[in-house]
Design a binder for these strands. Sequence first.
DNA 1: CGATAAATTTAGGCATGCCGAAAAAATTGT
DNA 2: ACAATTTTTTCGGCATGCCTAAATTTATCG
Lengths: 243, 243
Amino acid sequence: MPPNKHSPALSSGSASVQDYVKVIYSFTEWQDEPISSSQLANRLGVANSSVSEMVRKLVELGLAIHEPYSAVELSDEGRRLALAMVRRHRLLETFLVQELDYAWDEVHDEAELLEHTVSDTFIERLSAKLGYPHRDPHGDPIPDAHGAVDIPQAHQLAILDAGHTGRITRISDSNPALLRFLSAEDIGLDDHVEVIGRKPFGGPVAVRVGTAGRDRELDLGDEAASALWVFSDKPHAGCALAT
Amino acid sequence: MPPNKHSPALSSGSASVQDYVKVIYSFTEWQDEPISSSQLANRLGVANSSVSEMVRKLVELGLAIHEPYSAVELSDEGRRLALAMVRRHRLLETFLVQELDYAWDEVHDEAELLEHTVSDTFIERLSAKLGYPHRDPHGDPIPDAHGAVDIPQAHQLAILDAGHTGRITRISDSNPALLRFLSAEDIGLDDHVEVIGRKPFGGPVAVRVGTAGRDRELDLGDEAASALWVFSDKPHAGCALAT
DNA sequence: CGATAAATTTAGGCATGCCGAAAAAATTGT
DNA sequence: ACAATTTTTTCGGCATGCCTAAATTTATCG
């Protein structure tokens, strides 16, 4: 354990424990199914056997709930730890973009490392300096210091059909190349979007996007359409509503 | 190894390796004797046996030079790594004080952890943002990106005798309580100092210190007098000159 | 010089987290 | 329902870095 000021929630975690808990949490942030062992292993880049071991440990630590051979879920304390880590990650990303001029697609890896290292003091001073932001550069919500988050109601562009209009509220940061593409196309947070037309499901989506009056029409591939989440002006029956 | 952009010098080191190398380097920064095994163990807070093992590893890695039962020294590559770590540490301290309003005595531990985690990109952007500083908040010189440092010529107040005058150029950060005392007494970098009188060696030193016209007289204990380094207006024969 | 003391190294262990291979349980298809 | 496949767990091992205790080497002092 580093000789560092950590909140009660964080004191229970090595960097590995923190990573596991964060991935378990993140899996259910925009969807409800709990994560399976092998999905966890996949996202963490470790072997399945490593996950089995670590999950046992998480249960011992009271951070996770797990019946053998079934999915992994977080306990209340696990969720607290996860939210603290998510807060750290997103505040760090915001800092890197706003203060150190990092590009959109560069911040993730750096934040991933730093989130395990900085103290609570650091995080709270950073939050103050940044003006207590509620959203990171990708539009993901930043939990407050007590773990409260408001998950904006948003849908993936990929599941909306023609006629829908809305505002981009989130851009998944899982694919750096895609982030660079969107940046090059000058598509950003809070841009207006209108779905003009759709090819068969999984195919490209024709949209009109832009800030203020500067709209353009273009076709987005499935990957891009899945990464863009929009706050819909007229919600659509086919969309599961965020809890 | 973290999936991070690291300079060639840094790619050769786990956090432990980095710590060892930094301590070995730091020992000779203001004095010339190389460090012994047990001194290393002391400063790192580990057992002597751990040092023996790790030093063998440093030699294998080409970072250190060591004959059994004698002192430990750095190779050129070891020194490069050490200087990179010192640079990181001091830039981080400067950042914490200037941008996140950390107090003088709070920065050390935080920097100690972060220095192993941040990327080279982070450090260089930080350096730019801070205006390429050459000195950290304690007055310690910050090596440039290529490892060049200029060690200012300075002497511990404790070894100067009556009549000496100079400017405080460095304040050792090894004792947080002392830093708080100096801060409370409003003694800071670049203050003028005059040694008024001395009790027997090791005893208190009477000095006049202050910024601009605001001088005060006070007695400093040996600890304080050893932590303050002054650039002497009239160097004294009894002082070893910094190389 | 030689005995004792101090510093250093070696030897054997422990904890954390990872792995691959093999065993066990769950799921799937017909 | 039951055989084949997939998923998950167990088992033995490995690397890092630390520890204590026991050698071993070096230093010190009468």
